[in-house]
Design a protein around this nucleic acid. Structure first.
Length: 260
DNA sequence: ATGCCATCCAATGGATGA
């Protein structure tokens, strides 16, 4: 199955670009971030008519995640465990039923965290600790797992065109990268990085200052796989061309083909 | 650079993003 992650920066603004990419890329499952819509306002029928089941976890104005799937979904849950006070819509899980087995997929929109220091950065680090606990709990099942989404983390200097510009940013601070490594080091595989070494692979280009035209990008959207899912990894890619089309998101889709 | 662009909501600007 081909599974993608795409931060669309608003479903209303991407009402043409998202279906166009789906028709071209034909993913079986897509994790969306920043739908910026309440569940009732999400244009479900548009995607159902294309053959996708639609599961949303939205809120007014900001954040919001969703899973679109042409394969059956079971046991959909919403929200990242660990803080009943947290009302931000950033986490959704579902079990996808493939031809050769099941995959538990978690779609996530990890907090940005800027400015640093401050409550937003504290929230980011606390959220990452909660995610670490959730990943650890799921890994105990020894089932194939996929954690797809916008991590708002630049893992290494080679993941930014200008790493020096990010040294004081919440996406690249040593404490952020260490928190990200604590998650990866539970035993997850960065599906893109194990297949494509080297610099120059980005998933985000700012709208400002001609970042796209200058290829001033960063790699912050990641596909992390549990050992049982990584065993099934067939191919990966970043659909970079989407960034140059009409009315694009500032992120582009990233995908992996798994033999499941 | 501390917001050059974009989005959303609501109001003719503010909050947010990365």
């Amino acid at each position: 199955m081909k599974i993608a992650s795409f931060n669309i920066n608003g479903i209303k603004a991407r009402i043409e670009a998202l279906p166009a990419w789906l028709a071209e890329a034909k993913p079986d499952v897509v994790c969306l971030q920043e739908i910026k819509s309440v569940d009732d306002a999400f244009p479900r029928a548009l995607f159902e008519d294309m053959g996708y089941r639609v599961e949303t976890h939205g809120m007014k104005s900001f954040n919001g995640v969703a899973i679109l799937s042409r394969l059956p979904l079971e046991d959909v849950t919403r929200g990242l465990p660990g803080d009943d006070e947290d009302i931000q819509a950033r986490w959704i899980e579902a079990t996808v039923i493939g031809d050769k087995g099941a995959l538990r997929i978690c779609g996530l929109y990890l907090p940005n965290g800027n400015p640093v220091p401050g409550p937003k950065y504290d929230y980011k680090l606390a959220w990452m600790a909660r995610m670490q606990a959730r990943v650890q709990a799921l890994l105990a099942t020894e089932e194939p797992l996929a954690f797809y989404g916008d991590y708002n983390v630049i893992p290494e200097p080679q993941d930014a065109a200008k790493p020096e510009a990010w040294v004081n940013d919440a996406l690249f601070l040593p404490e952020t990268r260490a928190a990200y490594r604590r998650i990866v080091n539970l035993g997850l595989t960065d599906a893109f990085r194990v297949r494509v070494p080297g610099p120059g692979n980005y998933t985000f280009w700012d709208y400002q200052a001609g970042a796209w035209e200058r290829n001033n990008g960063i790699r912050i959207d990641h596909l992390l796989l549990s050992p049982q899912a990584a065993d099934r990894l067939v191919d990966v890619g970043i659909d970079k061309g989407v960034r140059g089309l009409e009315k694009p998101s500032d992120h582009v889709p990233i995908w992996a083909e798994l033999s499941i």
